[in-house]
Simulated assay, not measured.
Amino acid sequence: MWHGEYRDPRLVEVYDAERVWGWEHDFFMRVLADRMAPRVLDLGCGTGQLAIRMAGDGHDVTAVDPAGPALDAARRKPGAARVRWIQGSFETLPSQAFDAAFLTGHVVQHLSDQEWTGALHALREALVTDGRLIFDGQDPAHRPWEGWGREATERGIVLDDGSLVLAWTERAKPEGDVVPVVHHYLFEDGVELTSTAALRFRDEDELRDALRAAGFRVDQVYGGWGREPPGLGHDGELIVIAVAEPRMVR
Protein backbone atom coordinates (compact mmCIF):
# COMPACT_ATOMS: atom_id res chain seq x y z
CA MET A 1 0.00 0.00 0.00
CA TRP A 2 1.13 3.57 -0.72
CA HIS A 3 0.65 5.67 2.42
CA GLY A 4 1.26 8.94 0.65
CA GLU A 5 0.31 11.15 3.60
CA TYR A 6 3.61 10.16 5.22
CA ARG A 7 5.85 9.68 2.16
CA ASP A 8 4.93 12.28 -0.46
CA PRO A 9 6.06 15.79 0.60
CA ARG A 10 2.93 17.46 -0.82
CA LEU A 11 0.64 15.04 0.96
CA VAL A 12 2.64 15.31 4.18
CA GLU A 13 1.83 19.04 4.13
CA VAL A 14 -1.87 18.27 3.63
CA TYR A 15 -1.83 15.68 6.41
CA ASP A 16 -0.16 18.13 8.79
CA ALA A 17 -2.63 20.91 7.97
CA GLU A 18 -5.64 18.69 8.65
CA ARG A 19 -4.40 17.05 11.87
CA VAL A 20 -4.94 19.89 14.32
CA TRP A 21 -4.74 19.32 18.08
CA GLY A 22 -7.95 17.64 19.26
CA TRP A 23 -9.68 15.70 22.01
CA GLU A 24 -7.63 12.61 21.30
CA HIS A 25 -4.38 14.47 21.93
CA ASP A 26 -5.72 15.84 25.22
CA PHE A 27 -6.71 12.29 26.17
CA PHE A 28 -3.22 10.91 25.52
CA MET A 29 -1.60 13.71 27.49
CA ARG A 30 -3.90 13.03 30.46
CA VAL A 31 -3.14 9.30 30.32
CA LEU A 32 0.57 10.06 30.22
CA ALA A 33 0.19 12.21 33.33
CA ASP A 34 -1.67 9.45 35.23
CA ARG A 35 1.59 7.69 36.11
CA MET A 36 5.28 8.50 36.28
CA ALA A 37 6.77 7.85 32.83
CA PRO A 38 10.06 9.68 32.28
CA ARG A 39 10.95 7.79 29.06
CA VAL A 40 8.31 7.73 26.34
CA LEU A 41 8.14 6.08 22.93
CA ASP A 42 5.89 7.47 20.16
CA LEU A 43 5.84 4.69 17.56
CA GLY A 44 4.39 5.76 14.23
CA CYS A 45 4.80 9.39 15.24
CA GLY A 46 3.98 10.86 11.83
CA THR A 47 4.70 14.60 11.75
CA GLY A 48 5.41 14.67 15.47
CA GLN A 49 2.66 16.78 17.00
CA LEU A 50 2.12 14.60 20.07
CA ALA A 51 5.80 13.75 20.53
CA ILE A 52 6.78 17.43 20.65
CA ARG A 53 4.09 18.22 23.20
CA MET A 54 5.14 15.31 25.42
CA ALA A 55 8.77 16.42 25.25
CA GLY A 56 7.70 19.96 26.05
CA ASP A 57 6.13 18.64 29.25
CA GLY A 58 9.50 17.28 30.34
CA HIS A 59 9.45 13.68 29.11
CA ASP A 60 12.43 12.05 27.40
CA VAL A 61 10.70 11.24 24.08
CA THR A 62 11.86 8.94 21.30
CA ALA A 63 9.72 9.26 18.16
CA VAL A 64 9.96 6.52 15.52
CA ASP A 65 8.44 6.42 12.05
CA PRO A 66 9.39 4.58 8.84
CA ALA A 67 8.55 7.58 6.62
CA GLY A 68 11.38 10.03 6.06
CA PRO A 69 9.25 12.92 4.67
CA ALA A 70 6.97 12.83 7.73
CA LEU A 71 9.99 12.96 10.03
CA ASP A 72 11.45 15.83 7.99
CA ALA A 73 8.26 17.81 8.64
CA ALA A 74 8.39 16.91 12.33
CA ARG A 75 11.99 18.06 12.70
CA ARG A 76 11.11 21.51 11.29
CA LYS A 77 8.52 22.24 13.99
CA PRO A 78 9.14 24.45 17.03
CA GLY A 79 10.27 22.33 19.97
CA ALA A 80 11.40 19.44 17.76
CA ALA A 81 14.95 19.60 19.08
CA ARG A 82 13.75 18.16 22.40
CA VAL A 83 12.71 14.90 20.69
CA ARG A 84 14.94 12.02 19.56
CA TRP A 85 13.75 11.29 16.00
CA ILE A 86 14.45 7.86 14.48
CA GLN A 87 13.53 6.61 11.02
CA GLY A 88 12.59 2.97 11.50
CA SER A 89 9.91 0.72 12.91
CA PHE A 90 9.30 -1.69 15.75
CA GLU A 91 12.14 -3.95 14.59
CA THR A 92 14.72 -1.38 15.74
CA LEU A 93 13.46 -0.64 19.27
CA PRO A 94 15.96 -0.93 22.14
CA SER A 95 15.31 -3.32 25.02
CA GLN A 96 13.67 -2.13 28.28
CA ALA A 97 14.20 1.50 27.32
CA PHE A 98 10.74 3.02 27.90
CA ASP A 99 8.20 3.54 30.67
CA ALA A 100 5.33 4.22 28.25
CA ALA A 101 4.71 3.63 24.56
CA PHE A 102 2.08 5.22 22.31
CA LEU A 103 0.63 4.15 18.96
CA THR A 104 -1.85 6.86 18.04
CA GLY A 105 -3.81 7.95 14.99
CA HIS A 106 -5.19 4.44 14.37
CA VAL A 107 -1.71 3.19 13.45
CA VAL A 108 -2.71 -0.34 14.47
CA GLN A 109 -5.21 -0.51 11.59
CA HIS A 110 -2.37 -0.16 9.08
CA LEU A 111 -0.60 -3.29 10.34
CA SER A 112 -1.16 -6.77 8.97
CA ASP A 113 -1.70 -9.58 11.48
CA GLN A 114 1.96 -10.60 11.19
CA GLU A 115 3.14 -7.02 11.68
CA TRP A 116 0.77 -6.50 14.62
CA THR A 117 2.07 -9.61 16.37
CA GLY A 118 5.66 -8.56 15.74
CA ALA A 119 5.01 -5.02 16.95
CA LEU A 120 3.43 -6.18 20.21
CA HIS A 121 6.31 -8.51 21.04
CA ALA A 122 8.84 -5.80 20.18
CA LEU A 123 6.98 -3.28 22.34
CA ARG A 124 6.91 -5.68 25.27
CA GLU A 125 10.67 -6.04 24.95
CA ALA A 126 11.10 -2.27 24.69
CA LEU A 127 9.03 -1.51 27.81
CA VAL A 128 10.11 -2.02 31.39
CA THR A 129 7.97 -4.29 33.55
CA ASP A 130 4.76 -2.40 34.45
CA GLY A 131 5.39 0.00 31.58
CA ARG A 132 2.25 1.04 29.73
CA LEU A 133 1.22 0.63 26.10
CA ILE A 134 -1.47 3.04 24.89
CA PHE A 135 -3.08 2.82 21.45
CA ASP A 136 -6.31 3.53 19.59
CA GLY A 137 -8.27 1.97 16.75
CA GLN A 138 -11.77 2.21 15.35
CA ASP A 139 -14.31 -0.25 16.73
CA PRO A 140 -15.41 -2.58 13.90
CA ALA A 141 -18.78 -2.95 15.61
CA HIS A 142 -19.53 0.60 14.43
CA ARG A 143 -18.65 -0.36 10.81
CA PRO A 144 -17.10 3.06 10.11
CA TRP A 145 -16.19 2.13 6.53
CA GLU A 146 -19.88 2.14 5.54
CA GLY A 147 -19.79 5.94 5.58
CA TRP A 148 -16.69 6.27 3.43
CA GLY A 149 -17.48 7.69 0.03
CA ARG A 150 -16.92 10.96 -1.80
CA GLU A 151 -20.27 12.50 -0.91
CA ALA A 152 -19.83 11.88 2.83
CA THR A 153 -16.10 12.57 3.16
CA GLU A 154 -15.40 15.42 0.73
CA ARG A 155 -13.84 18.41 2.48
CA GLY A 156 -11.53 21.34 1.86
CA ILE A 157 -8.14 21.59 3.57
CA VAL A 158 -6.39 24.96 3.73
CA LEU A 159 -2.60 24.83 3.53
CA ASP A 160 -0.18 27.27 5.14
CA ASP A 161 0.15 29.24 1.89
CA GLY A 162 -3.64 29.75 1.77
CA SER A 163 -4.27 27.32 -1.08
CA LEU A 164 -7.14 24.84 -0.87
CA VAL A 165 -6.94 21.08 -1.32
CA LEU A 166 -10.12 19.13 -1.99
CA ALA A 167 -9.98 15.73 -0.29
CA TRP A 168 -12.21 12.67 -0.11
CA THR A 169 -12.06 8.94 0.62
CA GLU A 170 -13.44 5.98 -1.29
CA ARG A 171 -13.43 2.35 -0.24
CA ALA A 172 -13.57 -0.95 -2.04
CA LYS A 173 -15.56 -3.96 -0.90
CA PRO A 174 -14.20 -5.30 2.44
CA GLU A 175 -12.15 -8.47 2.15
CA GLY A 176 -12.94 -10.22 5.44
CA ASP A 177 -11.63 -7.95 8.19
CA VAL A 178 -9.61 -5.80 5.76
CA VAL A 179 -11.04 -2.71 4.08
CA PRO A 180 -9.12 -1.29 1.07
CA VAL A 181 -9.38 2.49 0.82
CA VAL A 182 -8.17 5.23 -1.51
CA HIS A 183 -7.72 8.81 -0.29
CA HIS A 184 -7.91 11.47 -3.02
CA TYR A 185 -6.32 14.94 -2.87
CA LEU A 186 -7.03 17.52 -5.60
CA PHE A 187 -4.76 20.58 -5.53
CA GLU A 188 -5.54 24.02 -6.94
CA ASP A 189 -2.98 23.51 -9.72
CA GLY A 190 -5.06 20.58 -11.00
CA VAL A 191 -2.77 17.84 -9.69
CA GLU A 192 -4.61 14.95 -8.05
CA LEU A 193 -2.64 12.65 -5.76
CA THR A 194 -3.89 9.48 -4.11
CA SER A 195 -2.93 7.41 -1.11
CA THR A 196 -3.96 3.80 -0.61
CA ALA A 197 -4.31 1.65 2.48
CA ALA A 198 -5.63 -1.75 3.52
CA LEU A 199 -7.12 -1.26 6.96
CA ARG A 200 -7.37 -4.23 9.32
CA PHE A 201 -10.08 -3.79 11.97
CA ARG A 202 -9.75 -5.74 15.23
CA ASP A 203 -12.46 -6.07 17.85
CA GLU A 204 -11.91 -5.94 21.59
CA ASP A 205 -11.56 -9.70 22.01
CA GLU A 206 -8.90 -9.88 19.28
CA LEU A 207 -6.96 -7.03 20.87
CA ARG A 208 -7.10 -8.63 24.31
CA ASP A 209 -5.96 -12.02 23.01
CA ALA A 210 -3.05 -10.54 21.07
CA LEU A 211 -1.91 -8.44 24.02
CA ARG A 212 -2.07 -11.39 26.40
CA ALA A 213 -0.01 -13.53 24.02
CA ALA A 214 2.66 -10.80 23.80
CA GLY A 215 3.01 -10.42 27.58
CA PHE A 216 0.62 -7.59 28.37
CA ARG A 217 -2.25 -7.25 30.82
CA VAL A 218 -5.14 -5.06 29.68
CA ASP A 219 -5.77 -2.32 32.22
CA GLN A 220 -8.50 -0.29 30.51
CA VAL A 221 -10.46 -0.27 27.27
CA TYR A 222 -12.46 2.84 26.38
CA GLY A 223 -14.93 3.51 23.61
CA GLY A 224 -14.36 7.25 23.38
CA TRP A 225 -12.18 10.17 24.32
CA GLY A 226 -14.31 10.91 27.38
CA ARG A 227 -13.38 7.45 28.75
CA GLU A 228 -16.78 5.99 27.93
CA PRO A 229 -17.07 2.16 27.92
CA PRO A 230 -16.80 0.45 24.51
CA GLY A 231 -20.00 0.66 22.52
CA LEU A 232 -21.24 3.79 24.26
CA GLY A 233 -21.00 7.32 22.95
CA HIS A 234 -20.40 8.44 19.39
CA ASP A 235 -16.62 8.23 18.98
CA GLY A 236 -16.64 4.57 17.89
CA GLU A 237 -13.14 3.96 19.21
CA LEU A 238 -11.33 1.19 21.01
CA ILE A 239 -8.70 2.93 23.13
CA VAL A 240 -6.52 0.48 25.03
CA ILE A 241 -4.19 0.89 27.99
CA ALA A 242 -2.14 -2.25 28.61
CA VAL A 243 0.58 -3.01 31.14
CA ALA A 244 3.76 -5.01 30.49
CA GLU A 245 3.74 -8.14 32.63
CA PRO A 246 6.92 -9.54 34.24
CA ARG A 247 8.89 -11.77 31.91
CA MET A 248 8.77 -15.49 32.52
CA VAL A 249 12.03 -16.80 33.94
CA ARG A 250 13.18 -20.05 32.32
Score class of each variant (00 low, 15 high):
G156P: 00
Y185L: 00
F102D: 00
P180D: 01
D113N: 11
A119R: 05
G215M: 11
E170T: 10
F98I: 02
W168K: 08
A214Y: 03
E188L: 10
E192N: 06
V181Y: 01
R202T: 14
A119P: 09
A197I: 03
G215N: 12
E146T: 15
E192H: 10
S112C: 10
H142N: 09
W145G: 00
R171N: 08
P144H: 02
H121F: 11
L193R: 11
G223C: 10
H106V: 12
Q96E: 15
A214D: 02
R212L: 03
F201R: 01
V178R: 09
R171S: 11
L159E: 01
T117C: 04
L111V: 01
A97Y: 04
S89E: 02
R150L: 04
L133P: 04
A197F: 05
A126I: 12
D205I: 13
L186P: 00
A197N: 10
T104V: 15
Q87D: 01
Y185C: 01
S112T: 15
A172E: 09
E192Y: 04
H184G: 02
V179M: 00
G147Y: 01
D99S: 10
G215A: 12
G147I: 02
S89T: 06
S195P: 15
V178E: 02
E170D: 13
W168Y: 13
F135G: 00
S195N: 12
D189P: 05
R212G: 00
T92R: 11
A152P: 12
G88D: 13
E154A: 12
R155C: 10
R202M: 11
A119Y: 03
H142F: 10
A119H: 07
E192A: 05
E151H: 11
D161F: 08
D99Q: 07
G137F: 01
H106S: 13
D99K: 06
R124K: 14
A152V: 11
T104M: 11
S163C: 09
G223H: 07
H142W: 13
K173I: 07
V158W: 07
D177T: 15
L103H: 05
G131K: 03
A167R: 11
A167T: 13
P144Y: 04
E151K: 13
Q96A: 15
T129S: 05
I134L: 13
I157N: 00
D139I: 09
A167D: 06
